[in-house]
Design a protein around this nucleic acid. Structure first.
Lengths: 333, 333
DNA sequence: TTGAAAGCGATACCAA
DNA sequence: TTGGTATCGCTTTCAA
């Protein structure tokens, strides 16, 4: 059998309460008792039972991180940073994948209510107000990304401004027929809508007429679907001057298609992405992108979450994380 | 306040035990009482407290997955599959990053002993027998990958055979000066040792003399370090006929360096990887690699883990997952 | 500063 | 089939 506080207390000749005091270190304990207790802990190889502690305290020390798909580099980098920052602050992280399925998001919320989780960082895909109902009975929730949600705290990058800046940057290299890859057709992802909006705002500023044929829809934001979407597009349309992909993953799929067709990047067409995933730097050619500090996203999300744990009542807080355009070989003029 | 079993029991006019029976569905319950209880659960919006359940049962329903670095595509794909399979079987997954630091592995084991985790799937990097001491007091552990460990259950791909086959495949395209990228210099990663061994076995079969100058060391297996290592190598050595990178991530870094130097792949040098990460298919050119079913790795790991939970005593079990060479553009002759 | 005892919520034993 | 009750391990009042 595993040792418990009682065993430690008996061995150290003190009460369970004293053992608890030594471990949690809030109530002062005399040096000699502390030593005896620590000795006993070592001898018995005592490890506290976190289920019991969680039951008693109402907190588990675990937060959940819900992402659409861990296998995508973007999600993976976010997860990496959240896990790292959380660990530094003494939290464990449970990973959940929503697969962009609102039902999974619901499921998650109910799981979160079952007290094994003290809070939830949720990166939703679909623009859906209803999926997250932040009620009093729910644990604290922080949303990641461009969700239009008025209730939960949120950390995001200003996608509209970033997409606008990227479009302007592409135009500055002398390219004016700028296509975008990743616009949403049916179900609207918030990011798709906002990035398209930023793109169109830039065109307007530049006095470039809108051309619907330069919007290339792409339902899933993976290299695979992007490659497929771009391939069919190129079969039916002339090559644009520049291609702004709404994620780096899509850009990588696009680069692959262009290369296979012998279309030179950036000579024949410039390509840009969004997210600054690690592999973008090693793409061929290296990928121009919208970069932001993912570590900062993690830090802020965790800060909002922990603050929300102690103050459930105050209003929604939104943290906007800075971005910058990184120009690499894929758009050199 | 949140509702508890007692509240539900009172409302349904039954005892707490009956509520528990309804929820767990092992002990038969009469139809009418079941209905009453289910009604009460809905009305009170009851969600069981998993900490309490965990305390009572000694099981939490959570497993931990420990990986060196979630941000690498390989780890991310493994994590994705484990989370998915685990979810299907009703498990939650806690993610831990070891950063290839043995201390983190220790820390993890002790955390695992604290009963918030029913089992651990560990993907270690460093060949270190001592890091995982599988004793009676520890939760079940399943190791992922090429670790030389005699105690814990393990799921792996036969790296020696795979590296041998890949080397032979490269040789079949008429390339005989085959370099490998990723050999370990100081601390030995098990995978590096085994893959080097397979490579050398193939050369021997082919009657090709060993050439130490074709072993390119690379401490960390990231695109960045691979790019750096290859760049310095090329500054001092002639170009080999083929470059076998021990991971796809390294291969992606290598492709980037080769492209920047105007070295054509596969015309001037063939490049191959290992792992078959999703982006390899969209690399420029698409990457020849050693592929294996990551979903299967996840399934087997979870199977071993759950079986081990009910049978702590039986001997070590090892599952070997099949691989196959996928030839893509990066090695076309 | 330390001890005794109650209780967090769910489950399982033993009766009925 | 169902009800009462002890129990899992820890923390925290309240007293000493």
């Amino acid at each position: 059998m595993r040792a418990t506080v009682k065993d430690v207390a008996r061995r150290a000749g003190v009460s369970p309460k004293t053992v608890s005091n030594v471990m949690n270190g809030v109530v002062p304990v005399s040096g000699s008792t502390r030593l005896k207790v620590e000795q006993a802990i070592l001898e018995l190889d005592y490890v506290p039972n976190l289920s019991a502690r969680g039951l008693r305290n109402g907190r588990s020390g675990v937060i959940a991180l819900a992402l659409p798909d861990l296998a995508t580099p973007y999600s993976a980098e976010i997860a990496h940073n959240v896990v790292e920052v959380a660990h530094e602050q003494g939290w464990s992280v449970q990973i959940e994948e929503t697969g962009s399925d609102p039902r999974r998001e619901y499921e998650l919320m109910s799981r979160a209510r079952s007290n094994l989780i003290d809070g939830l960082i949720l990166n939703p895909v679909v623009l859906d107000e209803s999926a997250v109902k932040v009620g009093v009975s729910l644990p604290p929730v922080v949303l990641l990304g461009e969700v239009s949600q008025q209730l939960a705290d949120r950390v995001w990058v200003d996608s509209v401004a970033a997409a606008r800046d990227m479009t302007l940057a592409l135009a500055r290299t002398g390219r004016h027929r700028i296509a975008v890859l990743g616009t949403a057709e049916g179900r609207h992802s918030a990011a798709a809508v906002l990035r398209t909006r930023g793109y169109q705002a830039a065109l307007e500023e530049l006095g470039i007429d809108r051309d619907e044929s330069l919007l290339i829809p792409c339902e899933k934001w993976t290299p695979q679907t992007a490659a497929g979407a771009l391939a069919s597009y190129l079969d039916a349309h002339p090559l644009p001057d520049a291609l702004f992909c709404f994620t780096d993953s899509m850009a990588i799929g696009a680069l692959s298609v262009l290369w296979k067709r012998g279309i030179k990047v950036p000579d024949d067409v410039a390509v840009a992405g969004f997210d600054d995933i690690a592999d973008g730097q090693y793409a061929v050619p290296s990928l121009t992108t919208v970069s932001f500090d993912k570590r900062r996203v993690a830090t802020e999300a965790l800060r909002l979450l922990t603050e929300r744990m102690t103050d459930r009542a105050s209003g929604q807080r939104v943290v906007t994380v800075d971005y910058r355009i990184i120009e690499r070989d894929s758009t050199r003029s």
